[in-house]
Amino acid sequence: MVGESAVRKVIHVDMDAFFASVEQRDDPSLRGKPVAVGHGATRGVVAAASYEARTYGVKSALPSVTALRRCPDLIFVPPRFEVYRAVSQQIHSIFADYTDLIQPLSLDEAYLDVTADRRCLKTAWLTAKEIRARILTETGLTASAGISYNKFLAKLASDHRKPNGQFAVTPDMGAAWVETLPVSRFHGVGPVTAEKMKRLGIESGGDLRSKSLAFLQQHFGSSADWYFAIARGEDERPVNPNRVRKSSGSETTFRQDLVASDEIEAGVVRMVEEVWSWCEKRQAFGRTATVKVKYADFQQITRRRSRPSAITSFVELREAALDLIRSVLPTAKPIRLVGVTVSTFEDASSAPAGHLFEQDAQHTYDPAAA
């Protein structure tokens, strides 16, 4: 039994349908309607969806054409990232009144270690409740929260009472609660791994717990220790306010599939401009440049090159990206999407962990989902 004094108190705060909720807040005519943040063209993807849209199966990273097929009345709203950033800063200012141990995961979610109880609210439950109330008062937006003794359980818990709710997993219930959940909900278990686990007879946390460490090592290699621990509700990772960001990237889906080399190169340069703007602002410079290409048939390839020293100018990054894209040009097969990423930061300590969906996450479209 873990001593009470040793129990860490972690809150995971997750804004409810953040981008879409901001748009509904700022435009009352959108309230109560299915809203998707994105450009709405048949070539684009959904960056965020309101809860009204989610009832139709519309979700982030879904191709716009599929989203409209599922919900013909879907309203597309262009993203306003400068507004989302400003609201995110408001929210993080609230967090800072309760703890210095804040680990952002994105603009709309973060871990908070409130073990020290700076505001003397007695419990992490009351702390989460006050934080959510302040977010609503100061931004007009709702948030959900998960409270537990580690990050893994806090993140699972925040999804348990969404939207606009909170749920706590205490030390005496953690392991048993995990056993009841599908492994597909676990952090670190993606769709491919979940399917592999299913083939091995592992569908719930209880199934996962029944497997020995040797069995998990045989089938999952270096991930075995993590799966063995979380099946027991264990996660020793601290809330790390200095967690570094490992890459910065941007990608675009062309309005029409392209085969002309100059048009494809122009698309790459636009992505370089976005990535370099971030790097310059954060003074975070990487040694590795990567170009991603997705063809019209959804085949995806990447080309990557690392240098002995960091890329410290726009011209260097542009030339590196163009060299990489030219390695697949000219192309007879039309190209649907290109992306540019910089990684292996030389000054990673200056790079925050938070990210924007459309700019940083690299998403692969599964044709079977269309």
Results as ranks from 00 to 15, higher is better:
Phe95Leu: 07
Pro334Ile: 00
Thr66Met: 06
Arg245Gly: 11
Lys196Met: 13
Gly165Ile: 07
Pro78Ala: 12
Ser261Asp: 13
Arg303Val: 03
Tyr295Gln: 07
Ser313Ala: 11
Asp97Tyr: 10
Ser309Trp: 13
Gly57Trp: 02
Arg199Phe: 11
Ala36Trp: 01
Ser93Cys: 10
Pro63Gln: 03
Ala6Tyr: 10
His92Ile: 11
Glu4Trp: 12
Ala53Cys: 05
Val293Pro: 05
Ala145Thr: 03
Phe345Trp: 06
Phe345Gly: 04
Arg25His: 08
Arg85Tyr: 12
Asp27Trp: 04
Val87Ile: 15
Ala369Trp: 13
Val291Trp: 05
Arg305Ala: 11
His363Asp: 12
Arg237Ile: 01
Pro104Asn: 08
Gln166Tyr: 08
Ala61Leu: 03
Lys9Phe: 05
Ala116Asp: 10
Gln89Arg: 15
Gly40Met: 07
Lys211Ala: 05
Gly165Trp: 04
Arg70Lys: 15
Ser50Cys: 06
Met197His: 06
Ala86Val: 05
Thr288Leu: 11
Asp100Cys: 09
Met1His: 12
Ile102Asp: 02
His39Gly: 13
Ile325Ser: 08
Val244Leu: 12
Ser148His: 07
Thr312Arg: 15
Gly249Gln: 00
Ala67Pro: 02
Phe152Asp: 09
Phe285Pro: 00
Arg132Cys: 04
Val338Ala: 04
Met1Lys: 12
Glu273Asn: 14
Ser223Val: 09
Asn150Gln: 06
Ala361Gly: 00
Gly249Cys: 02
Gly146Asp: 09
Trp278Asp: 12
Arg304Val: 15
Ala116Tyr: 10
Ala145Phe: 04
Gly44Cys: 05
Thr252Lys: 12
Lys162Ala: 02
Val37Lys: 00
Leu216Met: 08
Ala224Val: 09
Asp172Ser: 14
Gly57Ser: 04
Arg85Pro: 00
Trp125Lys: 11
Ala17Pro: 00
Gly146Phe: 00
Ser247Glu: 04
Gly40Gln: 03
Ala116Met: 11
His363Lys: 11
Pro104Ser: 12
Gln283Met: 12
Ser222Ala: 15
Ser50Pro: 05
Gln24Val: 06
Ala361Asp: 07
Val37Glu: 03
Ser21Ile: 05
Ala61Ser: 10
Arg270Phe: 05
Ser277His: 13
Trp125Phe: 14
Val315Thr: 14
Gly40Ser: 04
Lys151His: 02
Phe314Arg: 15
Val192Cys: 09
Leu322Tyr: 06
Arg255Tyr: 10
Ala370Thr: 10
Ser222Cys: 07
Ser5Arg: 14
Gln103Met: 10
Asp113Gln: 09
Val244Ala: 15
Trp276Arg: 02
Arg305Gly: 03
Ala175Pro: 03
Asp14Met: 06
Ile335Val: 15
Met271Glu: 14
Asp100His: 13
Ala17Val: 01
Asn150Thr: 01
Pro171Leu: 03
Leu153Tyr: 01
Met173Asn: 13
